[in-house]
C-alpha cells in the first residue's frame, strides 16, 4: 500500500505518476483521451497545421482508434516523440499507442516488450538521384556520396547493401529531412536515401521534380505499423482490429460516405453486417459497443480513403498504392476475416 500512497502524493504534488496499468482501455476511457505518440513532422504521415491540429496518415490511425473507443476522433492527445524516446514513452505509460512510422522487427517485438498490431504502410529504403547523373541502378553508385537521414535502421541497411555489393560510398548523415534536402539539392551528395515514401514526399516539393529519379532498388523491408505495450492483449486487440476494420472496409466498399447508410440496417453482405454491428456482436468481444467500427470508419474514411487523402496520388506527395494496395488488387494490404 505504501507505494500507491506515495505515488498518489507525488501525483498531486505536480509530478504525474503514470503507471502502466493492467487495462489501458479503462485508463483511456477514464481519461476521455487517447495519448498517441507521433513524429514531430513527417510530410503526409504526421504534421500540425496552422491551427495546431495534427494531420496525416499515422495520425489518422490514432483518430480511428479514438473514435472506436471513445466515440470521438478528436479526443486524442498527440505527443511528438524523438526516435530515442519513443519506446520508453510507450513502456512508461506516457502514451497508449505509438503511431510513428516504426519498423516492425523481431527484436523490437520481443526484446523491447512491444506489440506491433499490424502494418499500415509497407515501406522500404530507396535511393533518389538527379536524372543528369545517368544512374539507373543503385549498383552503379560506386564511390558516390550518400546523404542519409539518420534513423535507427537506415545506416545499417545502407552499410549492409554497399558491403554486400562490394562497392564503396561516402555517407553524409543528416538529422532532419530539411537539411538532407538542402544538401542534396545543392549537389553536396549524389544520392539521398531514406524510406521510399519519404523520398517521394521530398521529391514532390522540388522546383523541378522531373529532374530526379527514384532508383528501382529497395534495399530493405520496412513494414511500418502502430505499436502498443506488450502484455495488454485486450488493448492490443482493439488497436489491431480497428486498423483491420479500416482495411476490411475498403475491401468491402464501405466508405465514410456510405457507412451511415450501410450501418442503418442489415445489408445483403453478412461480413459488412458483422463489421458494422448490424449482425452478431463482434464489438462486445473486444470490450466495445456494436458501432465501434462504424465510428472508426466515419472518423476519416476507410484505409483507401485515408491513403488517398494524406499521401495518395492526388496529394502533393503523390504515392501510388503499390505494395499498399488491397490484396485483391495485387498488394499486401490484407485484413483477416471479420467473423
Amino acid at each position: 500500500m505504501k507505494k500507491s500512497i506515495m505515488l498518489g502524493a507525488l501525483a498531486v504534488a505536480g509530478l504525474t505518476a503514470a503507471s502502466a496499468s493492467a487495462s489501458t482501455l479503462d485508463d483511456v476511457k477514464a481519461r476521455g483521451k487517447l495519448n498517441c505518440g507521433v513524429l514531430s513532422g513527417l510530410t503526409g504521415f504526421s504534421q500540425p497545421d496552422a491551427n495546431g491540429v495534427w494531420e496525416g496518415f499515422d495520425v489518422a490511425v490514432c483518430r480511428a482508434v479514438a473514435a472506436a473507443v471513445l466515440g470521438d476522433s478528436t479526443a486524442v492527445e498527440f505527443v511528438p516523440l524523438t526516435t530515442q524516446v519513443r519506446f520508453t514513452a510507450l513502456a512508461s505509460g506516457e502514451i497508449d499507442i505509438l503511431a510513428r512510422n516504426t519498423t516492425w522487427t523481431f527484436s523490437r517485438d520481443t526484446d523491447l516488450k512491444l506489440d506491433f498490431i499490424g502494418v499500415n504502410y509497407y515501406d522500404g529504403q530507396g535511393f533518389m538521384v538527379p536524372k543528369s547523373l545517368g544512374v539507373t541502378s543503385a549498383k552503379d553508385l560506386d564511390g558516390a556520396t550518400v546523404c542519409i537521414q539518420t534513423g535507427t535502421t537506415t545506416e545499417l541497411n545502407l552499410a549492409d547493401f554497399f558491403r554486400a555489393n562490394n562497392i564503396s560510398y561516402e555517407p553524409i548523415p543528416i538529422e532532419t529531412n530539411a537539411e538532407a534536402q538542402q544538401q542534396y539539392l545543392a549537389g553536396a551528395c549524389d544520392v539521398y536515401t531514406t524510406d521510399a515514401s519519404g523520398l517521394a514526399a521530398t521529391r514532390a516539393t522540388f522546383e523541378a521534380p522531373g529532374d530526379h529519379v527514384i532508383l528501382p532498388e529497395i534495399i530493405s523491408k520496412e513494414p511500418l505499423g502502430p505499436v502498443v505495450r506488450h502484455g495488454d492483449n485486450e488493448w492490443g486487440d482493439i488497436a489491431m482490429w480497428t486498423l483491420n476494420a479500416l482495411i476490411a472496409a475498403e475491401e468491402l466498399g464501405v466508405t465514410s460516405a456510405n457507412v451511415e447508410e450501410l450501418s442503418a440496417a442489415a445489408t445483403t453482405n453478412p461480413e459488412i453486417n458483422r463489421l458494422l454491428g448490424t449482425e452478431g456482436d463482434l464489438g462486445a468481444m473486444i470490450g466495445l459497443d456494436a458501432q465501434w467500427a462504424v465510428r472508426a470508419i466515419a472518423a476519416g474514411g476507410n484505409y483507401g480513403e485515408l491513403f488517398e487523402k494524406n499521401i495518395g496520388v492526388n496529394t502533393p506527395i503523390g504515392l501510388a498504392r503499390g505494395l499498399n494496395a488491397q490484396w485483391t488488387e495485387g498488394g499486401l494490404i490484407y485484413a483477416p476475416p471479420f467473423r
Binding site: Q84, T150, T152, E155, L156, P173, I174, E175, E179
Partner: peptide
C-alpha cells in the same frame, strides 16, 4: 550531429545508443 559530423556524441551517444 546537427550537420552530420560524427563526433563522440553522434557515434557512441547517438547511433550506438539507438542501435
Amino acid at each position: 550531429i546537427a550537420i552530420g559530423y560524427m563526433d563522440v556524441r553522434s557515434t557512441l551517444g547517438g547511433i550506438t545508443v539507438n542501435q
